[in-house]
């Protein structure tokens, strides 16, 4: 037998995230593209990335709430709407950057035409 226990134990200290700690990587691996196609039972999941984002938000909010001693997350169904707000902020930023570039380009053309 070539592959015994040493396969997951690393002899040297390694600077990488331990497997059990890395949730996004784990979900990416164990969720089969969101749809379970083996087995007798088929479960349609949401998009894996969406699930993972919600999970991250959940963990973040649990931590925050624990520190503050509150438990609003248990009743708040809007964990994902917060994600939507974040997305909006990001999109806003991207659009501003594009606008900036486009304005520059437009003025450049005008300048060249003169």
């Amino acid at each position: 037998m070539t592959d015994v226990d040493h396969r997951f134990a690393s002899p040297e200290t390694q600077p990488y995230t331990p497997v059990t700690g890395n949730l996004a990587d784990l979900l990416e691996r164990v969720l089969d593209k969101g749809i379970v196609i083996a087995g007798d039972i088929k479960i349609d999941l949401l998009d894996i990335e969406l699930l993972t984002i919600r999970l991250r938000l959940f963990i973040a909010s649990v931590d925050t709430a624990k520190k503050a001693g509150i438990d609003w997350w248990e009743t708040d169904p809007a964990l994902s709407s917060r994600a939507a707000r974040d997305a909006l902020a990001d999109e806003n930023e991207r659009l501003r950057a594009r606008l900036d570039a486009l304005e520059g380009a437009a003025e450049e053309t005008q300048g060249a035409a003169r």
Partner: peptide, 30 residues
């Protein structure tokens, strides 16, 4: 979701102790 994913990973790890495995997707149910 998190508990389920970790539980699945534990099961796969247990299976992998003595040789190669083909891990199945989470929630492969028969």
């Amino acid at each position: 979701l998190e508990r389920c994913a970790r539980a699945h990973h534990r099961g796969v790890e247990a299976a992998a102790r003595r040789g190669p495995v083909v891990p199945l997707p989470m929630a492969t149910l028969y």
